[in-house]
Amino acid sequence: MIALVTGANGLIGANLCRALLKDGYEVRAFVRTSSDLSAIKDLSLAIVYGDVLQPETLLPAVAGCDVVFHVASVFSYWGITDDDLEKTAVDGVSNVLIAARTASVKRVVLTSSSVVFGSSSYTAVRSETDAPDETSSPAYCLSKLHQERTALKLAADLDLDLVVVNPCMTVGPHDTKLSPSNGIIIAYLSDPFRTTFPGGCNIVSATDVARGHILAAEKGRRGECYLLGSENMEWSLIHRTVGELCGVSGPQFYANHTISFLAATAHEMWAQFSGTRPTTTREQAKMVGQFYWYSHAKAADELGYAPGPARAALATAIASLVAGKHVSIPLRQTLSLGREVYDARAALMKEAP
C-alpha cells in the first residue's frame, strides 16, 4: 500500500509517517522546499517536494497512491492573516481532492480539527453532531470549519471516497516548529507566576492521533467524521499535571478572561519588538473560559480507536520538548523531571529509527 502524507514534517504528519511505516506502508512525504525535515530525515520514505496551493505539484505526487492523508495546514494564532489561513485551508484541500480524483486514489483522509464542533461555556462534552458559534470563533477555527465543509461537498461532487478525522489538542514528539498544542506546555513552564485560567480542552497523544488516522483509512465510513481525542481536562488540572511531571509548583495564579487578554496583548507587543513568537496571543485569549471537551466514542465504536491517558501523552511530550530546542538551558535547569518523563524518554529513544 502506498500512502501520501501532505504536511509530513509537522507534528501529526511526522508521527503519522512513523505509524504508517511501522504498519508496512510505503510512504511518500509531501513537503515544501522550505520545510524543516528534521522530524522525518531518518525515516525510510520518499520525499516529494511541492505545495498544496500549486496543483501541478500534486498530480505526480498522488499518482499510484492507494490513500492520501491530507494533513498539511496552518495551525497558528500568530503571524498569518485570516485570508491566508482561509486560502491554505480551503484551496489546499480542494487541490488535493481534485488531484486524488484525477489519479483514481482509492481513499483520502482529511485531518480537520475538533474545533469544528464548537465549544461550551460550561462542562459539556461535544460530539460530531455539534456545531460551533461562527460569530465568535477565532479565524483558525473558522478556516478549519470551512475546509471541512468544502471537502465534504467537493468529495460528494467528485464521487471521491473521503473520511475526515478531527484531532483534539495533540501533544507529543517530533514537533520541530512548536505547534500551539505543545506550546501550552512551554508557556506554563516559562511562566514565573504559574498561571492557569478557566475552561479546558481534550488532551491526546500524537501517537494515538496517528493511529486514529490509519484506522480511519482502513475502517472509516465514507463521508463520515471521527473525533480523535483522549481525556477532557480543565486547564487547572492540565497545568497541575505538567507541574507534577516537571517538578515545579502551581498553579499559583488564576487569570480570568480579561487578565488573559491583557497578558496576551503584552506578549504580542514584546514579540513584535523582539522578533520572536509570543507564547500566547489575543486570539487564544478569546478562547479562555470555554470548554473544548469532546467524545471519541464514535471512533472507538466504529474504528476500534483506543487512546492512552492524557497524563502519559503529556509526559511523552515533555520528554521530547526538554531534549530539544524549544526548552532553553536556563529553563531546563529549573525543572526536576519525574520518573514518568524519563520512562517516556527511554521509550522514545527505543522507537527511534
Results as ranks from 00 to 15, higher is better:
residue 249 S to R: 15
residue 179 S to H: 00
residue 172 G to W: 10
residue 180 P to A: 01
residue 227 L to N: 15
residue 245 L to F: 10
residue 225 C to L: 12
residue 241 T to W: 03
residue 149 R to C: 08
residue 258 T to D: 08
residue 232 N to F: 00
residue 143 S to E: 03
residue 195 T to I: 09
residue 135 T to I: 02
residue 178 L to W: 03
residue 207 T to M: 07
residue 247 G to D: 03
residue 140 Y to E: 06
residue 241 T to A: 03
residue 157 D to Q: 10
residue 204 V to K: 02
residue 251 P to D: 13
residue 156 A to R: 14
residue 138 P to I: 05
residue 263 A to P: 00
residue 214 I to W: 04
residue 168 C to F: 08
residue 141 C to H: 12
residue 245 L to E: 08
residue 224 E to R: 15
residue 213 H to K: 07
residue 173 P to F: 02
residue 259 I to D: 11
residue 186 I to P: 00
residue 143 S to L: 07
residue 237 L to K: 09
residue 160 L to T: 08
residue 207 T to V: 13
residue 162 L to I: 11
residue 192 P to D: 01
residue 201 C to D: 01
residue 147 Q to A: 10
residue 217 A to I: 11
residue 250 G to A: 09
residue 149 R to T: 14
residue 185 I to R: 11
residue 177 K to C: 02
residue 199 G to D: 03
residue 221 R to C: 10
residue 228 L to T: 02
residue 224 E to S: 15
residue 181 S to D: 10
residue 229 G to F: 06
residue 226 Y to W: 07
residue 256 N to R: 11
residue 196 T to Q: 00
residue 231 E to Q: 14
residue 217 A to L: 07
residue 190 S to N: 01
residue 191 D to G: 05
residue 259 I to A: 13
residue 164 V to T: 15
residue 268 E to M: 00
residue 161 D to P: 05
residue 199 G to I: 01
residue 244 E to Q: 15
residue 212 G to P: 14
residue 136 S to L: 14
residue 162 L to H: 14
residue 161 D to L: 09
residue 166 N to E: 05
residue 142 L to F: 06
residue 192 P to C: 05
residue 177 K to W: 02
residue 170 T to M: 04
residue 249 S to M: 06
residue 139 A to D: 13
residue 224 E to G: 11
residue 257 H to G: 10
residue 223 G to N: 15
residue 206 A to Q: 03
residue 220 G to T: 06
residue 238 I to F: 15
residue 139 A to T: 09
residue 205 S to H: 08
residue 178 L to H: 04
residue 159 D to Q: 07
residue 165 V to W: 02
residue 246 C to P: 15
residue 145 L to D: 08
residue 257 H to C: 09
residue 147 Q to T: 09
residue 139 A to S: 15
residue 229 G to L: 07
residue 198 P to A: 04
residue 252 Q to K: 14
residue 150 T to Y: 06
residue 263 A to S: 08
residue 191 D to E: 00
residue 162 L to N: 12
residue 140 Y to V: 02
residue 258 T to G: 02
residue 259 I to F: 10
residue 249 S to V: 13
residue 254 Y to I: 03
residue 200 G to P: 00
residue 198 P to V: 11
residue 142 L to E: 09
residue 156 A to K: 14
residue 240 R to C: 01
residue 135 T to W: 06
residue 222 R to G: 05
residue 173 P to V: 01
residue 144 K to Y: 05
residue 204 V to S: 09
residue 196 T to P: 04
residue 216 A to M: 10
residue 267 H to L: 12
residue 236 S to N: 13
residue 182 N to E: 01
residue 164 V to N: 12
residue 230 S to W: 06
residue 182 N to W: 03
residue 139 A to Y: 12
residue 164 V to F: 12
residue 153 K to C: 10
residue 140 Y to G: 06
residue 262 L to D: 09
residue 247 G to W: 07
residue 247 G to L: 05
residue 195 T to G: 01
residue 174 H to I: 04
residue 224 E to W: 07
residue 196 T to G: 03
residue 221 R to H: 14
residue 240 R to W: 02
residue 195 T to S: 13
residue 173 P to A: 07
residue 212 G to S: 15
residue 162 L to M: 11
residue 212 G to M: 14
